[in-house]
């Protein structure tokens, strides 16, 4: 087994699962009924994507694990998602700003992964990129509506952007696994997505009358399993039933 290949696909699954888990918390609590549906729908896309990626990673590993073993059977230090995905939802501005920044990244990432030399990953990317395009259209619209809405919504969006911005750099700082996968034509060198991401985000923020925050600090560590303190609680909730009653079918 190629460990880097397995890890690479598993990390993609981690980003999908953890962000989907966060979004699903809005179910029944969002600002109006149409948004309850949209949030559940986006969360469902992400959970579905996590399932496909984990199943693919488990097959690459060939040790008899399945999607649930990867989602429910690992501890915090073994998850390789970006920190931005595990941050608490905050208010609606915070959730949507985060979503937008990740959607721009995911859309570019999965567009490129459609050409992966790993045919299984390319097929998953083919499905994911359609969802990403829709997610991006939605979150991009919301950023403009809320940024260029009322004084309050503008202030909330700017505060959310200032808070979350430091967590975006991590998406582009690859490690040896990313390098190896990019060299093998399986994955994407994350740094190669940075300039286009920045251009697209800056243009949308301008439409939203929001200021691009200063790059004065950045958080990182997700790829190495060095998470925020929020991650343990998220996993405690996600994994509770399987941890309490191990080895059962559900």
């Amino acid at each position: 087994m190629n460990v880097a290949h397995f890890e690479y696909v598993q990390r993609l699954g981690d980003n999908a699962l953890i962000l989907g888990q966060r979004l699903s918390e809005w179910c029944g609590h969002s600002p109006f009924l149409e948004e309850d549906i949209a949030m559940a729908n986006t969360a469902l896309d992400l959970i579905g994507r996590a399932r496909m990626l984990y199943a693919h990673a488990a097959a690459l590993e060939g040790q008899g694990r399945d999607e649930d073993a990867l989602a429910y059977g690992r501890d915090e230090r073994q998850f390789g998602n970006f920190l931005i995905c595990e941050l608490p939802n905050g208010d609606y501005a915070c959730t949507l700003i985060r979503q937008y920044l990740v959607d721009v990244y995911h859309h570019a990432l999965y567009s490129t992964l459609c050409g992966s030399s790993d045919a299984g990953l390319a097929a998953i990317a083919g499905k994911a990129v359609k969802e990403c395009a829709y997610h991006l259209r939605r979150s991009g619209d919301w950023v403009v509506r809320l940024g260029d809405g009322t004084a309050e919504s503008h202030a909330r969006c700017q505060a959310a952007l200032d808070e979350v911005w430091a967590y975006t750099a991590e998406m582009f700082n690859g490690d040896a696994i990313d390098d190896a996968m990019a060299a093998a034509g399986i994955g994407v060198a994350p740094g190669s997505l940075a300039a286009a991401w920045r251009d697209e985000v800056e243009a949308q923020l301008a439409l939203a009358t929001l200021s691009v925050p200063r790059d004065d600090w950045s958080a990182s560590g997700g790829r190495q399993g060095l998470h925020t303190e929020h991650m343990g609680r998220l996993l405690a909730e996600l994994q509770f039933v399987q941890r309490a009653y191990p080895g059962q079918k559900w």
Binding site: G28, P31, F32, Y92, V144, D148, T150, S153
Partner: peptide
Amino acid sequence: KAHEDGEWVRDAMLAH
């Protein structure tokens, strides 16, 4: 709570 917390979002949509 969902309705009250969402008021600024609905207001912003209309304002936009």
